[in-house]
Design a protein around this nucleic acid. Sequence first.
DNA 1: TGAAAGTTAACGAAAAGTGTTTAAGTCCCG
DNA 2: CGGGACTTAAACACTTTTCGTTAACTTTCA
Lengths: 134, 134
Amino acid sequence: MKDGLLTERQMEVLRYRKQGLTQQQIADIISTSKANVCTIEKSAMENIRRAKETLEFLYTLDATHLCTIPSGTDLFNVPAIIFGEAEKINIKVKYDTISLINRLRESRSEACKARVVCEDIIVYITDQGELYFG
Amino acid sequence: MKDGLLTERQMEVLRYRKQGLTQQQIADIISTSKANVCTIEKSAMENIRRAKETLEFLYTLDATHLCTIPSGTDLFNVPAIIFGEAEKINIKVKYDTISLINRLRESRSEACKARVVCEDIIVYITDQGELYFG
DNA sequence: TGAAAGTTAACGAAAAGTGTTTAAGTCCCG
DNA sequence: CGGGACTTAAACACTTTTCGTTAACTTTCA
């Protein structure tokens, strides 16, 4: 039984950072270079990103594939597509038009350029109407 | 830019498992021993555990542990419990009864079945009265 | 009880992650 | 411009994780 993803070193740096210390100050405290503090902090953030992604995967496990939004689709057409597909399988989506777009932007910002979807987006849905974008 | 914590192999096994296949059946499909499938599945679960713990740490970075809502609690009793605990440490929760329940449902929908909490939920609170559910 | 499902332990090889250093780089502000 | 804060890349020693095998063990249940 081990701890979380973060090493002692990484948690140490994050805690000091939260207190508002600069990388140089932290470097002095823990006796290393500021470059090292930077890489430690960076890998901590990377680990946090991976932890989030891991749980997202877990959610998609009990979600079913709903549809795929093709690259090039206008962002404002996405909700209609999703509502339509969800209706076909008798699931009520738990988001309205606006919050659906926000949720998509939030979780796949790199796939949304201006008003257009610039990557294929796979849409998953749970029985409860929760959405995930792959 | 890598993916989550889980390896391809681990996700593969979890997906088949979700479909209800036995370890032996999966072993046949991916051409290995059932013992190996067992260890892959086990380490996948371990990784998921660590991912959760990592995010818990993130919350505790600027929040303190308030209390734990035990599985089985009626959803409508949750606010009273939280308000009570927060009062003990002189923090005013920034949500009213209704929005607190909504917030919980939003962030831990899979832990709320109908009117009942079906998993233990760890509650964190910041000095500002913001809540997190672990 | 017997068979199928699942778990565990010990071990090895390959792969991935971590902390470090050094040296060069960007970015922003006064 | 100069300096402080931060980022990046390459290389290194080191540790941990992963996938795999074999063989024995426990659990479940018809």
